[in-house]
Write a protein that binds this DNA or RNA. Structure first.
Length: 584
RNA sequence: GCCGCUGUGGCUAAGGGGUAUAGCGACGCCUUGGUAAGGCGUAGGUCGUGGGUCCAAUUCCCAUCAGCGGCUCCA
């Protein structure tokens, strides 16, 4: 597709969808200004799967307005306006925008480099400050839909005014648009909050907003993950510990958490003393390090802990299991010498990759640097950041830099996973910390017999077991692999005549350690199969008179609807036991 | 926390100023049935919570709590 660039040239564009969507956002802004004169424009970019435009409109938009705006947009597309571009000198551009009352646009121009030409795009009566490129005519926006209205702060700063953002999407064809909308509908069915309820995995109640309850089936899944976690950590020479959930405020003052994190901390009073519910596990781990003196020969010391932390997250940020107020971190604190940093971090990156690959997750990596609210010297931060960058290079990992998003005590490498509709969630993280060891004055004895300061690495793989389970649920759409399936086999009797045989088979499965459920209800086999399908159980055993008379065989139906035919019961048991122990 | 929307039996929804409907599910009876829903019947809600307006509110208004979509923030 050809596009109009801000230098006035027309050429083949690199990203057709982006051009269509960006033009769609202009068409939306034009419709808004036609229907609601006086509405001010902020910004309106194309995004991953659509576009949005931020407006400042007196009284905001009502949901019905989306229909009216869509209708007006269709008109504008039908008018097939030609897009034109022109530039203005800085002062003239500011004057022009000011005369139109576009205060936000004036601010945008004022922030552009002094000597940059200020480009505008025009379609019919509508003119917008814009760097382009755009479609040549508005008819390029033939397949679009407005999706939602949301609040958004001007320039993403919560101290600024909240504007109204209208989200929409656009495609090159109606078919592509419909396919996208259908995909969104399908994704809703995989939402972990819905599946969590339907499959009886977890529940979040009004009595504890953000504090999830794990139901029996969810607990089986969680424990399977934890067993896997424990095995890995034994293999990798970690030492498991457990530290208290509530510790004295003085500890949190010493660690710096009170200064930098108190808004997120819950407190309680014990015998007139203030105690804090731990929002992180590091101070606890450090205290265990200090119990004994350590030699350089012991390092690296890798402590690990399934730590249940509580954080007061703001109410509007809670989201199913993905964002909660109490969660289990598969935490680890590793004490190393400066020379060991690169090898240790490289090892962790590989371990994280091993775990994510096991589930077939795609992930992307970010390097988060020093935030404004932080502690420690510039030199420490530089050394720590360099250490992480070196490890990333050694591993050959691609990453993006997330400026100012590090922890208050150190920079971090973050691993992000995607949910069913493409939102990403930070799960794994590796943080390099020079501060805690100083604050707690921990040391090891070196070859010279002198005390030296170890460096501390904080890291998680799942991140939070809760969030990881949320991602797992959506990734598998509830059809978990056998080893984490809450129920692995459902035993279904065809009629009352085979209740006994079904019970016998069930007992044998159970004795073999297989998680099974027996359905000996007085229902037809089709009904029992339907229910087992909805529960997304990997294997169903259909047991009727044929199987019962033989006494050693079972008929296996798989979750995907295929009929695996008859097998000897012993062979079936061996197969499931193997799948479970191989974790597939 | 901020902006907008939502809140009816376990779930999904309908309704609407004069104490509320359906389907699924649950339970009971009949049916003994071979790979995604056999039939009949029964129970279950006072409409998130608290105020207010009104002869009367679940239905209107206010507040509050929770959820949803975003923003900000974060594992």
């Amino acid at each position: 597709m050809k596009a109009l660039y801000s230098d006035g040239t027309v050429k083949e564009c690199e990203d057709e969808l982006k051009v269509i969507r960006h033009t769609a956002s202009h068409v939306l802004a034009q419709a808004v200004q036609r229907l609601y004169p006086g509405t001010k424009l902020a910004i309106g970019p194309a995004i991953d799967d659509g576009f949005y435009y931020d407006f400042d409109k007196e009284g905001g938009f009502a949901p019905e307005d989306l229909d009216k705006l869509e209708a007006e947009m269709k008109k504008i597309v039908k008018e097939n306006l030609k897009l034109e571009t022109f530039t203005k000198p800085r002062e003239e551009a500011i004057e022009f925008l000011r005369s139109k009352g576009e205060d936000y646009k004036v601010q945008l121009v004022e922030d552009l480099p002094e000597d940059a030409p200020i480009s505008f795009y025009k379609q019919g009566e509508f003119v917008d400050l814009c760097a382009g490129p755009h479609a040549l005519y508005t008819k390029a926006v033939k397949a679009f839909k407005l999706l939602s209205i949301a609040g958004a702060y001007w320039r993403g700063n919560e101290k600024n005014k909240m504007l109204q953002r209208i989200y929409g999407t656009a495609f090159a064809s109606k078919e592509a648009l419909d396919a996208h909308l259908t995909m969104l509908e399908e994704a809703k069915k995989r939402d972990h909050r819905r599946l969590g309820r339907e499959l009886g995995l977890f529940a979040i109640m009004e009595e504890g907003p953000g504090f999830p309850f794990f139901l029996p089936k969810g607990m089986v899944l969680k424990n399977a993950l934890i067993d896997y976690w424990r095995g890995l950590h034994i293999r990798e020479d970690y030492l498991e510990i457990s530290t208290p959930m509530i510790l004295s405020q003085s500890l949190w003052l010493q660690s710096g958490h009170w200064d930098h994190y108190k808004d997120n901390m819950y407190t309680t009073t014990i015998d007139d003393e203030t105690y804090c519910v731990k929002p992180m596990n590091c101070p606890g781990s450090i205290l265990t390090y200090r119990v004994h003196t350590h030699s350089y020969k012991e390092l690296p010391i890798r402590t690990c802990e399934l730590g249940l932390v509580h954080r007061h997250e703001r109410s509007g940020t809670l989201h199913g299991l993905m964002r909660v107020r109490c969660f289990t971190q598969d935490d680890s604190h590793i004490y190393v010498t400066p020379e060991q940093i690169t090898d240790e971090i490289t090892g962790i990156v590989r371990l994280i990759d091993e775990v994510y690959s096991k589930f077939g997750f795609k992930y992307h990596v970010e390097l988060s640097t020093r935030p404004e609210d932080s502690m420690g010297s510039d030199e420490d931060w530089e050394r720590a950041t360099d250490g992480l960058v070196t490890a990333l290079k050694v591993c050959g990992l691609e990453y993006v830099v997330n400026e100012g998003d590090g922890a208050f005590y150190g920079p971090k490498i973050d691993f992000h996973l995607e949910d069913s509709i493409g939102r990403t969630w930070q799960c794994g993280t590796i943080q390099l910390d020079f501060q805690m060891p100083q604050r707690f004055d921990i040391s090891y004895v070196g070859t010279d017999g002198e005390k030296h300061r170890p460096i501390m690495i904080h890291r998680v793989i799942f991140g939070s077991v809760e969030r990881f389970i949320g991602i797992l649920i959506e990734h598998y759409a509830g059809k978990f692999p056998v080893w984490i399936s809450p129920v692995q086999v459902k035993v279904l009797s065809v009629s009352e005549k085979t209740f006994d045989y079904a019970s016998k088979v069930a007992a044998k499965l159970k004795a073999a350690g297989i998680r099974m459920e027996l359905d000996n209800r007085d229902e037809k086999i089709g009904y029992k199969i339907r229910e087992a399908q909805l529960e997304k159980v990997p294997y169903m055993l259909v047991l009727g008179e044929k199987e019962s008379e033989d006494g050693t065989i079972v008929t296996v139906r798989c979750r995907d609807g295929t009929d695996a035919g008859q097998m000897r019961l012993d062979d079936f048991i061996a197969k499931v036991v193997k799948e479970n122990s191989d974790r597939v």
